[in-house]
């Protein structure tokens, strides 16, 4: 996790996307809630854009 946080800080620095940090934290937290609520999901997308 430590190296992940280091990586993500380096990424935001490189991309000059510090404005994304609060949104990122909220969305990840929200996403984490979804994980806890639902378990794993393999999405039935017609075209997975990710």
């Amino acid at each position: 996790m430590k190296s992940f946080i280091k990586e993500i800080i380096a990424y935001m620095n490189a991309r000059k996307k510090w404005w994304l940090a609060p949104i990122l934290i909220i969305m990840i937290a929200f996403g984490a809630l979804l994980v806890l609520a639902e378990g794993s999901a393999i999405a039935p997308f017609i075209y997975t854009i990710f």
Binding site: S3, F4, E7, M27, I28, F30, G31, A32, L34, V35, E38, G39, S40, A41, I42, A43, P44, F45, F50
Partner: peptide, 19 residues
């Protein structure tokens, strides 16, 4: 709906692709 499906995949797995 899409967000709800994509986020668990990313948070559990894809975001930590390097590890």
């Amino acid at each position: 709906t899409s967000f709800k499906m994509a986020m668990p995949v990313w948070i559990k797995d894809k975001l930590f692709q390097k590890d």
